[in-house]
Structure formats: structure tokens, C-alpha cells
């Protein structure tokens, strides 16, 4: 097949292109993963489909119920939106950790999700915030919860001709707070050894009324650690609760040994980081009360 480069202007054009070329085509937004994979010989698509010229993929809308983030919005541009940073500090912390400033100029939350790395930084934060993915395909639109978008390392629910259009995050209530922490051996420029996203709500008494804990890099996909979330519900975020959530996260983690860390190490750090992340999210939630 002849190599090509396409810049569709509408979702319909894009889905048609993707359907026509099948596996020979690869859509991209920032290209920060794709170009590295091409360089390493892991992917060699014939047709490169640049999604950045489709207006809907670049939208950012902060509504009264929902925040809509276009799949191709650069993470740098998201960070420049003060209202978004105020509403979803944890998600933005996660987005900010995707690579250097240079990477931030190109990387997107949508791309991070579609690359389907178990260690993707923004995904635990999306899952914790109960984000929903808007997917467009030849047969129209469908919604997929962020927690179910990736089906394994490098694979997603996207079918032939489908593409991710946007992420929809419920607008957090004032008494909610989110946070994201990751562990890396350096201070920057690393892939998460463990990543933890937490979103929780505290009522006026400080009782945790809702919580979601998501763990990255400790399983083939991001783990929606419901037992950890449950450990927080119905009481204050006190030492005992932190101990419970830490232990539950450790239990929920199913890591492997690899060059970035041993399974035992990852399990331990998942517990430590979960406790620390919950503390930050709880502080933020309390500040909203």
C-alpha cells in the first residue's frame, strides 16, 4: 500500500478513512507515542491520520453538569485553563506528568488513553473521576466508561473505523476532591512505576460519602480498586481509614516484575501512594466544604 498522510476535517471523514484502511492506518493526535513506536519498529502504519484538524477533538467545554475535553487537546493547553485546574486538580496533575514540557506541547489525554499503556498517567485520574469516553464510528456514537476503555496493554475497545472524540467528566461537586500521584525513581521524565488516582466527596462532618480509587502500572490495565474505595466510605479520612485504603490498594494491585520495578516493590508502593493520594484528595474536598 502506498504510504500516506491524511488530515481529515470532520469526524465522518476520519472514520471513513480509518474504516477504509483498517489496520494499515493509525490515527494520532500529538504523536508522542506513535512516533516513538514507529522509530522502535513496533508499528509501521502506511497511512498516518492526523486528528488535530477536527474541531470537535480540540474542544474544551466546562458545563454545569459535565466537563468535555476533546481527545486531541494538548495537555499544555489544558493546564492553561485555570477553571479546569481548579475543578479537576488531580486530573491536571496527572496530565502534567505525561512527559516533559516539550511532550506537553503535543500529548493529549485522549492519546494517553488510546495508547493503552498500563502506566498511562492520566487514566487512573480519569477513572477516579468517572470519566466517560465518547467514541465515534461508522455506525455513530457510543459511550464507554474510561475504566473499560483499555482491554490490555496496547489494546482498546475501539473497533474498525472508530475513534475517541472526547472525554466527559462529571463536574465535581464543591465538596469533592481529586488527586493523582505517581512514583518514579527520578523527579521527571520517567514512566510511572505506580500511579494512583483518587476522587472522593466529604460531607460537612467530614464523612466520606463517595470515593473512587484507581491504580496504574500495577496490572495489565488501570485497576478500578473498588475495595479500596469502599474502605473509605461511611467515615472520616482518619489514620484507620488511611491504613484500610492503603492495605486494600496493596491487595488490589496485581503487578509484574519488569525493568522498572519488581512486583513486590510495586505492591508496596501502591499502598504508600494510595494513602498519600487519599490525603491530598481529602484535603481538597475539605477545602470545598
Amino acid at each position: 500500500m502506498q504510504a500516506g498522510f491524511e488530515q481529515p476535517r470532520t469526524i465522518e471523514e476520519a472514520t471513513a478513512l480509518l474504516q477504509k484502511h483498517g489496520d494499515a492506518a493509525r490515527p494520532f493526535a500529538g504523536g508522542t507515542d506513535l512516533l516513538v513506536q514507529m522509530r522502535g519498529g513496533m508499528r509501521s502504519p502506511d497511512i498516518l491520520v492526523d486528528l488535530k484538524r477536527i474541531p470537535e477533538l480540540g474542544q474544551l467545554e466546562i458545563g454545569s453538569d459535565e466537563i468535555v475535553i476533546g481527545a486531541a487537546c494538548s495537555t499544555a493547553s489544558l493546564r492553561e485553563n485555570a477553571e479546569l485546574v481548579r475543578l479537576l486538580p488531580g486530573l491536571l496533575e496527572a496530565a502534567e506528568l505525561i512527559g516533559s514540557e516539550q511532550i506537553q506541547g503535543r500529548s493529549s489525554i485522549g492519546g494517553n488513553l488510546c495508547n493503552a499503556s498500563p502506566a498511562a498517567d492520566s487514566v487512573p485520574a480519569l477513572v477516579a473521576n468517572s470519566a466517560v469516553c465518547s467514541v465515534a464510528g461508522p455506525d455513530g456514537r457510543r459511550d464507554v466508561p474510561a475504566a473499560e476503555f483499555s482491554t490490555g496493554p496496547g489494546s482498546t475497545v475501539l473497533g474498525s473505523g472508530e475513534l475517541l472524540v472526547s472525554l466527559r467528566v462529571p463536574r465535581p461537586a464543591p465538596d469533592a476532591g481529586d488527586a493523582y500521584l505517581r512514583f518514579i525513581p527520578r523527579s521527571e521524565m520517567d514512566i510511572a512505576v505506580v500511579g494512583v488516582g483518587v476522587a472522593l466527596t466529604l460531607d460537612a462532618d467530614g464523612t466520606c460519602t463517595a470515593a473512587r480509587v484507581a491504580l496504574g502500572a500495577v496490572g495489565p490495565t488501570v485497576i478500578d480498586a473498588t475495595t479500596a474505595a469502599t474502605a473509605l466510605l461511611g467515615g472520616p479520612i482518619d489514620t484507620a481509614a488511611l491504613e484500610r485504603v492503603s492495605e486494600a490498594a496493596r491487595e488490589a494491585a496485581r503487578p509484574i516484575d519488569d525493568k522498572r520495578g519488581t512486583a513486590a516493590y510495586r505492591k508496596h508502593v501502591a499502598g504508600v501512594l494510595t494513602r498519600r493520594t487519599v490525603e491530598i484528595a481529602a484535603r481538597r474536598a475539605a477545602e470545598g466544604n
Partner: peptide
């Protein structure tokens, strides 16, 4: 060699 790149060879960066 499993880490033949700057990402996983981990030399100090400015913020380290």
C-alpha cells in the same frame, strides 16, 4: 539490553 534509551537508563535531569 532492556533499557537502551534515555527514558529507562535514567540519567539525572535538571529537576533531580
Amino acid at each position: 539490553l532492556e533499557n537502551p534509551g534515555f527514558l529507562d537508563y535514567r540519567m539525572p535531569v535538571a529537576s533531580d
